[in-house]
Design a protein around this nucleic acid. Structure first.
Lengths: 343, 343
DNA sequence: GTTAGCACTCAACGAAATAGAGTGCTAACA
DNA sequence: TGTTAGCACTCTATTTCGTTGAGTGCTAAC
């Protein structure tokens, strides 16, 4: 028994239908569709075959069939057409993004909102990883009693702050001097090499400040990698509109899983290695997401991949549309973050 | 007919019971309690009176009674005892807050999490309003092509960044000079008076930079007030545990209302005027929150009120505990943000 | 003023009946 | 050999209806 063209066609029709209706698809519904001039009985035979092959499942004897994860995988890999964005959708996205966004955090928030608004699924995005950025400026500003605020600014215009301890013997003037020397010497140094460079280059001139520089490096390194709490989430409640989540307990499970950002953080971190990824139902490592599909993409600054973002929805997701939206958004983001109009 | 001591006692017993059980309280349940040596029939008579007075409601004829908003108001104003925090609760809060929190945003996040974890309700917090802070440092860092990153640092150690346009004729050296002059002259100026001061004081020395300074002031003012998207939220899904929200639609309504932060922002902004506030059910202006109670408090830096935070829960909320938790948290936050150990 | 007693109400629960969608199989057909 | 009509069968979802039990309101007696 083989997956011939007709079986494929029927499977595609079933998946398309199920994505819309969310309820098991019967043989009659398919046989009535244009294109197949087959009776429901014939479709039934084919459906039985497809079930045996693992592409369809039957919730119970007298129900229609629903696609399995395996079917979605086939669908995504071979059968699906991308759905171009409508003008309205593009407008909606632009409306979220064109407002003057001068903070990255705002860009992240707006992106997540745009994604969830346009797809009606749940959107998530991880802020940029700054490892590949280059240093532009370091400034130490004294606060009260042995503390200073260190501000580090990168080539792409990101700023990171941290409060650090300052040994008593370092005064305001000295902080200023250290700032100036570091800014001068480390200009254009990759952020993830800052540690080595500070330690190597500056042995001479700032030798007696070794310990202090060490604590600065530590603070910088800590701030460059985004953390779980920095993951932006939007539209988690969208899931409640889907019949899959009409059961309060399922909804609770899902919402609890995404509310603590750790799950999403892991997801996005792994996803940042691939330009694009689709994970369907059981393919997810996280048990909480066994009924969900996750589609992710990445954005860049210049040529350098900076972070990832994505959509979580029911396995019965409108993949074609989601993929198009993410591709579009990836271009938008890369453009926004790369252009000079952005922080 | 009057609210005598016995009626008050019975009302309190009913409210206490209902807060625990969430289901209508019958006369027998009260008459069996120690303290009242009254038969259920007597209680029934009193309950009928209390209903007539507007303190109790009956979902249907043969059900027990539930407290009205008016009853909760009376309860909160006159009858309730504060519930001291248990050691475990204090530990839980400290566990969230003692981790080295060097960014305000992290403090906000952790506070919200601690509040929702310890109360099992939904917590929200608004980041500090910096109007009353004083300027500590201004730094302009050139980015590419006519842009600079402006970093403003305040006395309490907060930093705000904004990308601003720089006229072509202003070079790197000039940016440095402007930074230095502004930092010197405006040192310790209240953030909300920065605009006037810049414009008045510096007419002479930086006269030809008037337009540029103007755009700086504008950017600063924009960044000092927290925005709706900055409101931190935690534990929204906690509400799903309560029988009040076992209906998916109610849950959806609530979650949608809090997901868009605007509602909460309005709530907290209004709340920041009062040191403490309790709003019960229908007292809420927002229709979405007619079934909820909102309890808010404020935190300070030094003597200056900085922002507000609060709890949203069902009207059947454990007010005594929530109030204690918020009072405790208010002290914690004020201490954290005031002490030198904080950004 | 308090209480026992009783008839009454109403939501909640569960069993039984019904409807309807859909299947699998068989036999006939092209 | 693939396709189709027909039919018995299965199983869920929905409705109906009786039952249960918590709780009330009222009355009459204490």
């Amino acid at each position: 028994m083989d997956l011939d063209a007709r079986k494929l066609g029927i499977l595609k029709a079933i998946i398309d239908e199920y994505i819309l209706s969310a309820s098991p698809v019967g043989s009659r519904a398919i046989s009535k569709q244009d294109g197949f001039n087959l009776s429901s009985a014939t479709i039934r035979n084919e459906m039985a075959d497809l079930e045996e092959l693992g592409y369809l499942e039957q919730p119970h004897t007298s129900a229609g069939r629903i696609p399995s994860d395996k079917a979605y995988r086939l669908y995504v890999d071979q059968m699906m057409q991308k759905a171009a964005l409508t003008d309205d959708e593009i407008k909606l996205i632009r409306a979220h993004l064109t407002a003057k966004l001068d903070e990255v955090e705002m860009v992240m928030k707006q992106t997540a909102q745009a994604l969830s608004a346009v797809t009606h699924y749940t959107a998530m995005i991880m802020p940029p990883m700054l490892a590949a950025n280059r240093l532009r400026h370091i400034q130490l500003v004294p606060l009260r009693e042995g503390r200073a605020l260190m501000v580090v600014i990168t080539s792409a215009g990101f700023a990171r702050e941290a409060v650090i301890r300052v040994p008593d013997e370092i005064g305001t003037g000295e902080l200023e001097r250290i700032s100036r020397i570091l800014t001068e010497r480390l200009h254009d140094c990759r952020m993830d090499q800052l540690g080595e460079r500070i330690m190597q280059d500056l042995g001479g001139e700032l030798f007696e400040r070794r310990a202090f520089l060490n604590s600065m490096v530590e603070a910088i390194e800590h701030k460059m990698e985004p953390d779980a709490p920095n993951v932006q989430l939007s539209g988690a409640t969208n899931m409640l509109h889907f019949p899959e989540y009409s059961d309060v307990n399922k909804a609770k499970m899902f919402l609890t899983a995404v509310e603590g950002r750790n799950t999403l953080y892991e997801l996005l971190k792994r996803a940042s290695r691939l330009e694009f990824s689709i994970t369907i139902g059981g393919e997810n490592e996280n048990d909480m997401l066994k009924d969900c599909s996750v589609v992710t993409a990445t954005y860049q600054i210049g040529e350098e991949p900076m972070g990832s973002f994505g959509i979580i929805g029911p396995t019965r997701m409108h993949y074609g549309k989601v993929i198009s939206v993410l591709e579009f958004m990836s271009r938008c983001l890369t453009e926004m973050l790369t252009s000079d109009d952005e922080e």
